[in-house]
Design a protein around this nucleic acid. Structure first.
Lengths: 138, 138
DNA sequence: TTCAAGACCTAGACTTAATCTAAACGCAAT
DNA sequence: ATTGCGTTTAGATTAAGTCTAGGTCTTGAA
């Protein structure tokens, strides 16, 4: 973190306040898929006075500026993902944990034949169990 | 509805109380993807005394017994789907409306090569705009 | 028919995620 | 120092969902 993170925000057109840098330092670096409240809990460890509203506002701002993506994949929970490129998702049904799958790992055919639907984007959601190797990797 | 619906419940191992039949009559017949509160609002029109807890309990029971599936695809909203077979989903980004896509409409390749992940099920989530033809169809 | 037991339902309190609001803060430019 | 604007704060509010304690209905046996 530090000036690197601040420049990242500036480049995205965001004023790098102390609170925003603190949120960015965690959420843009992790490869977890935290919920807003998980981000709040985490950032408060190093920044105890930060309010919930600020964390929510900041996360939504990052999404609007393209630094984050927001998904609701399971349990009605909204999570954030610093991986903004195209990719698929794997959900471990035991733990609820979400893993990113590389875009090239899967391929979807016949999308063009979806009559009556104008496709802008798509991704595959896979459910099952992650073996220990994958758990370490993510 | 009527005796047909009651038998459907009995076949699934569910005591067909009046409330359960009322919920089933709507949610098992619609091809919408209603939230629990939308089901509650709808069923109350014909059954004003039904409580919110009963609707939630009933929907969860139907899911457990395999009559419904439960998805959280967008907006952090949990929706119910009477289509319990394999299928994909299309989400209209303007309206938030969800459409079922037939399983055969798409095909996913390379799933077996997901090293480190034990796949139990998967589906494709497509986003875009539904043209009027599709809107009528669903 | 009557009764007890168990299943089912109800209203409302509670929990949690998320947003909103109004006031306060902080900093840049004057 | 002062003004002004963007940012942050605490707490209220909304909404989705669950829980609880008690009430009602149904069923089956006496």
């Amino acid at each position: 973190m530090g000036p690197r993170t601040a420049n990242l925000l500036r480049d995205a057109g965001i004023q790098p306040s102390a609170q925003r840098v603190a949120v960015a330092a965690y959420v843009l670096e992790t490869c977890d898929h935290p919920t807003a409240d998980q981000v709040w809990a985490r950032v408060r460890k190093s920044f105890p006075m930060i309010s919930r509203a600020t964390v929510y506002n900041t996360l939504n701002l990052f999404v609007k500026k393209g630094l984050l993506r927001q998904y609701t994949l399971a349990d009605g929970k909204t999570v954030f993902d610093a991986n903004v490129g195209r990719h698929h998702h794997f959900i471990d049904e035991r733990t609820g944990r979400i893993y990113d799958l590389p875009w090239e790992a899967l391929s979807v055919a016949k999308l063009d034949s979806l009559d009556g639907f104008e496709v802008r984007e798509y991704h595959v959601v896979v459910r099952g169990r992650a073996k220990s190797a994958a758990r370490r990797r993510a």
